[in-house]
């Protein structure tokens, strides 16, 4: 199975440092799962950019499926808008999943060749207890 068939990760963070940090953490153990960053505003300030998110999604498009991780609420809103505005079909948002742990677990499982739906199922265990 080629690299391109593995489920890709998209990291949407307000801070480019958080994104790069997550990628660095993953790359210590996993090197052949695509990790796309869409972090910071278009000026690389704190915030998120729908254009960057869209670009990350498009770089996955057609090749494989992707799971998107976000940090704060507005990052998720921008991710949702990008999916709706550009009719993205192959990316799913990991809702309420911690960005660091979530991305790490997903990278490991993607590397094992697991399907997107199975990875998302594993991620549910990381969900913060909301009760």
């Amino acid at each position: 199975m080629g690299v391109s068939n593995k489920v890709a990760l998209i990291i949407v963070s307000h801070s480019i440092h958080i994104g790069e940090g997550v990628k660095e953490l993953i790359s210590q153990v996993i090197t052949d799962v695509p990790v796309m960053l869409a972090c910071g505003t278009s000026d690389n300030e704190i915030g998120t950019s729908i254009e960057k998110i869209q670009a990350a999604m498009k770089s996955v498009n057609g090749k494989s499926e992707a799971i998107l991780f976000y940090d704060l609420g507005s990052a998720k809103m921008n991710a949702e808008m990008a999916i709706e505005m550009y009719s993205i079909k192959n990316t799913e948002i990991a809702e309420g999943i911690p960005i660091v742990e979530g991305a790490y677990v997903a990278a490991v499982e993607s590397n094992m060749g697991k399907a997107k739906s199975d990875i998302l199922k594993s991620l549910q265990k990381l969900k913060a207890d909301e009760s």
């Binding site: 505003t41 278009s42 300030e45 915030g47 998120t48 950019s49 729908i50 254009e51 609420g73 507005s74 809103m77 921008n78 949702e80 808008m81 505005m85």
Partner: peptide, 15 residues
């Protein structure tokens, strides 16, 4: 607005 505002107001006012 969605592209340029940044923060939650971008997607909210954009929507």
């Amino acid at each position: 607005l969605t592209a340029k505002v940044g923060g939650a107001s971008g997607p909210l006012y954009g929507t």
